[in-house]
Structures are given as structure tokens and as C-alpha cells.
Design a protein around this nucleic acid. Structure first.
Lengths: 235, 235
DNA sequence: CATCATCAGTTCGCTAACGAACATAACCAG
DNA sequence: CTGGTTATGTTCGTTAGCGAACTGATGATG
């Protein structure tokens, strides 16, 4: 098993901007290395930075009643962490935690907001991204309500694989349970079923996607729906 | 039983704008009467108008697999239908259906977008509203995942009452089941429990809230969370 | 007034997921 | 190699909600 696809270590949102704008933005960014489990935002706290993942990705979750948790969004190199700033708000409504360790570009909130006001290409791109984000959030709500754990897990693995730019990554059942808002036992059951079906394999947190199209078939339609809305809108 | 609270027949979003801006906007609006069940937007179709409910309210839903449905947002006189236009997109990702019949102000999409570009107070107000909307959408996801039908129904009744500006309104179990994404039977069970507890009463779709604070206690914390984020951000 | 449609209540068997607890198994550090 | 920690597997009894079907009641309509 080779480490599969290589990651383009750029942020696609930034890459889509006109050269001048992009370079000015990059000049205002610093490169940082995000570590697994690092908390980048907490609900009702100020957002001090925005992050453009290049080869890392970040999980957005909501907690409730102290115990229960659910992932409501995932930010990889197709996006940005810090969406509220696009709306002129500097407080995060969500938890943001690093799920895939790796490099990202970081910019302070204040200069970022100045750039937003100045650079209409950036503003347009981020509005578009926010729109897609909201679509996917709505989709996730319904999915979470109606689809069984195995299908939801399959979808989640595909979304993760997309952002990891690799067919293998390290995540435990415990962690996935947290993201999907189910018991660890529920993930174990679903995952071992997917493994029996030779769609994935794993040992002690090392997950490999063996059969991507099989996994798509095992997932609910929500994965394809999300992907379609992304490509339609972000090209 | 008196018809309870009287409705302020204004749209609060518009009311919050500076006099000049407000009057220019109102000049561009026409008054319309929305009928129950009327469809104002369909997924992947163009938004031809925005609506500012004055004494009506609108349900935003997502469907999945053709059958299953879930309400993901509710727009009353505190808001506006047509949020994608704020992001420069003219396609609705959601179904929008009139849940509470009554008057609203309507504006064509094109002049609305011109106003958005011109009037920064409007732009700011709508961004703020969108932010609140996203917060509530995330909250709804988790709520839908973790809370039992009876608590979710209680929450939903409170949200509806807020937008109906009255302690009574007309909606069948069937309809509520559709909004909550559960079977009609599930709503019947939950509603009759709330009725036994003297929190509400109903016959053939005529619902009366008898004990609002009791209903708040019966609901999950999500109602208060939503309300808090609304008042904190929109004043 | 008779009929029909709508709305609400109830039942039955079933399933996905739950909470709790315990059982392996792999890896890690001393 | 040993004991501790982490990751996964399994079991047991319970529960909320499901699909399907049927019953009763209230209003509206002809």
C-alpha cells in the first residue's frame, strides 16, 4: 500500500483569486503547522485569525447539553476557517478542532477584514464558499436525521479522504463517534461491516480506503449531493 | 379565549434601518398577501423576489430521497426570505412554503441587489441576520439528532408562536410531522402529552398555547439558545 | 340529512441505536 | 518480559421511533 495521491499544498480558495490579490493576501499570511486536536475556535469566543488549510483540515462541531456533539462542517484546502468574519462578525458560533494535522496559512482577523473590504474578488469567493457551506449544513441536518450510521460513516470517510488527499489517515472509532454523534460501539459495528465488505481496512486508528466507489455506493446520496453543489458553485 | 397579542404589522429587519434607507426600500416593495401552503422558492430554482414578512411566516425545508423532509429554518417578521441574494447567489437551496398566511412586503431580486450594493446599513443588517440564521441552523441539526420528539415539538410550537404573534394558530399534526421529520403518529403522541399537561390545547388543527413558560420547560434548551443568540445579535 | 373528507387516537410487530459493562488485542514504556 | 494504556470487539437489556393498518370523531358539502 503506497501513500496514494499527493497533496497539492495550496489553498484552492486563495488559488482562485487573481494574481495580484492573491499575492497581497499571501503576504499578509504566515505559515503555521496545525497539530491534531488543536482547538482553533470555541463557541462565543473571538476569532483572532482566519486559517486557509493547505494540507490540513479542520472539523467544525456543535455541542449540546454538555455531552452530545455533532460535526456540522469540515474545512480543508477548499475553504477557510473564520466564516463569521465574512459577515462582519468576530465571534465563532462553533468549535473548530484540527482533525488532519498539517500546514495552513494564517492571517490575523483585522488585516483580513481590511482585505475583504478592499478586494472584491476575495469577498465574492468567500460569499460563494459560505453559500456552499450553508447548503452542506442543511444537507447534513437531514442526513443526520434520516440515514443509518453505516451510510453516514461511509459519507464521512469520503469527505475526510477528500480533504486528506490520501487514501489513508489516522482516526479512531472513538473520534468518529464524536463527529457523527453516536456511540463508539455504533462506529465499531458500522466500520467492521465496511471492512467485511472490503471497502476499507483499519487497525488501531490507521484507516485505509480500499474501494472508493464501493464506499460511495455504501454511503447515502448526501455525499454526491454535497460534491455536486460544490463543483457547480465553486467550479 | 381572546385572540391574544396583537401583531405589529411591520418587518423588524426593515424597521431597524435608518429612516432614509427604509423609505427607499419600502418604495421598491409591493404589499402581497401570502396564502397558506404557497410555495415561494424551490431548491435549485431562481429566486425572483425577496420577501419581508410583516404578519406572515415562512418555513424553510430540505427534502431528501424524495420522501423525508425536515424544517431547517423559519422566517417571520424578524427576517427575510431570500438570503442567498445577500451572498450574491440567485438560486435557492431550500424549499420555502408559507406556514402562516398573512401580509408581506415583496421586492424583485434585481432592485434588491442594487439596494444591497448601495445601502450599507441594509447589507450589514442582512449579514447579521444570516449569521444568526446559520447559528440556528447548526443548533437545529444537533437538536434534531439528540432530542426527543416531545421536546422538539414544544420548541417548534414556541418558535411558531413567536412568529404568529398570537397564542393560537392553525396547523395539523400531519403538517408538524412534516416539519419535524417524524411520523404523524409521533406528533399525535407528543401533542396529546403536552395537552394532558395543560400546556397546549387543540382540536382539528386549532392549536392554543395555554402555558407558555410550561412549554418552555417542556422544550429542550435549544429554544432558549436560539432566542439568546437572536437577541444578543439583533437586539 | 347523508356523505365524504379530514383530523386525531390507538394498536402491533419491528429495528436502529442506546447505556453499561466486560473481553480481547496491540502497542508502549520501563 | 511485564504491566499499563489504548483501540477494538461483543453482549445484554432497554427505548424511541418506525411502517402499516384500523377506528372514531368532527366538519364541510351536496
Amino acid at each position: 500500500m503506497s501513500p496514494a495521491q499527493t497533496a497539492p499544498a495550496t489553498n484552492r480558495l486563495l488559488a482562485s483569486l487573481p494574481r495580484n490579490d492573491r499575492q497581497r493576501l499571501l503576504a499578509g499570511c504566515e505559515s503555521v503547522e496545525l497539530g491534531f486536536g488543536e482547538i482553533l475556535a470555541e463557541p462565543n469566543e473571538r476569532l483572532r485569525h482566519v486559517y486557509f488549510p493547505t494540507d490540513s483540515f479542520i472539523s467544525l462541531t456543535t455541542a449540546i447539553d454538555g455531552r452530545e456533539t455533532l460535526e456540522v462542517g469540515l474545512v480543508g484546502n477548499e475553504g477557510m476557517l473564520g466564516i463569521p468574519l465574512v459577515l462582519g462578525m468576530d465571534v465563532s458560533p462553533l468549535h473548530a478542532m484540527v482533525q488532519g494535522a498539517g500546514p495552513a496559512l494564517r492571517m490575523d482577523a483585522a488585516p483580513f477584514q481590511r482585505e475583504l473590504g478592499r478586494c472584491s474578488a476575495l469577498d465574492r469567493a468567500l460569499k460563494r464558499y459560505l453559500y456552499v457551506f450553508v447548503c452542506q449544513l442543511a444537507q447534513t441536518s437531514v442526513c443526520t436525521r434520516f440515514h443509518v450510521v453505516e451510510a453516514r460513516l461511509a459519507r464521512w470517510l469520503l469527505m475526510t479522504q477528500d480533504r486528506a488527499h490520501s487514501d489513508q489517515f489516522h482516526l479512531t472509532h472513538e473520534f468518529m463517534a464524536y463527529m457523527l454523534g453516536v456511540r463508539r460501539v455504533g462506529v465499531t459495528k458500522a466500520a467492521s461491516s465496511l471492512q467485511r465488505r472490503r471497502l476499507i481496512s483499519y487497525t488501531r486508528g490507521d484507516i485505509t480506503v480500499l474501494d472508493r466507489s464501493g464506499l460511495e455506493a455504501a454511503s447515502c446520496g448526501c455525499y454526491k449531493t454535497d460534491k455536486a453543489s460544490y463543483t457547480r458553485l465553486m467550479g
